[in-house]
């Protein structure tokens, strides 16, 4: 028995895709001005990269506000509950046609692996890129004497971490009950959820 519920609110979907677009463009322009390849002239890559960064900062500030006011930040509290089952699922049961051991519901949208990954993303990787990015541009104005190379290397490490995250994230998004299920849900907001015991749903609008 499958039930359709509105899983992702309009804000979450907007936030998710805007963030995805910004991060992908930041990676493209960033590695361009890093000299890994040459799509744009250096000056344009720099200007675009900086503008995208400011947009991402704005979006993130907004998202932090949203998480705090809606209490949704609780989604990221790490848990070990069912952690082993999740690991077993992705490394073994998924090949046997098994079911994801963590049942999604609106109060707990994330499995233990997602919780810890997204938490690290938010408290380590985002701040790392933000701080090194600002230092990159303004360290001399702020009177901070720092080797530009140190700042740049840290910023590069952060970029590779984002790229690595992106690869895994996009791949794991194909592991829904169909390959495109999670993508559809993130676009429309509606997720089909397997119900164990039929009981009146408390789906939110």
């Amino acid at each position: 028995m499958k039930e359709r519920i509105l899983f992702y609110t309009r804000f979450e979907r907007f936030w998710h895709w805007a963030q995805a677009l910004l991060i992908i463009l930041l990676l493209i322009t960033g590695f361009d001005l890093h000299g890994s390849y040459n799509i744009l002239p250096f000056g344009e890559a720099v200007t675009l990269h900086n503008q995208l960064a400011w947009l991402l900062i704005g979006l993130t500030a907004f998202a932090i506000f949203w998480h705090l006011t809606t209490g949704q930040w609780k989604q990221y509290i790490p848990t070990l509950d069912k952690a082993t089952e999740v690991v077993c699922f992705y490394s073994r049961d998924i090949f046997k046609g098994g079911q994801n051991p963590v049942k999604k519901d609106v109060d707990s949208k994330l499995n233990p692996m997602q919780r810890i990954t997204y938490l690290l993303l938010k408290v380590v990787l985002f701040p790392l890129q933000l701080i090194t990015g600002l230092l990159y541009l303004y360290s001399s104005e702020l009177g901070i004497t720092m080797e530009l190379s140190t700042v740049a290397y840290l910023h590069t490490i952060g970029s590779f971490a984002f790229l690595a995250f992106l690869i895994i994230h996009v791949y794991l998004a194909t592991t829904g009950h169909t390959v495109l299920a999670h993508f559809k849900a993130m676009v429309t907001g509606w997720e089909e959820i397997e119900e164990e015991k039929p009981e009146p749903s408390s789906s939110v609008q």
Binding site: L33, H34, F42, E147, L148, S149, T156
Partner: peptide
Amino acid sequence: GFYIPGRDYS
């Protein structure tokens, strides 16, 4: 001996 973005990298 100093870092220029786009020129230098590790």
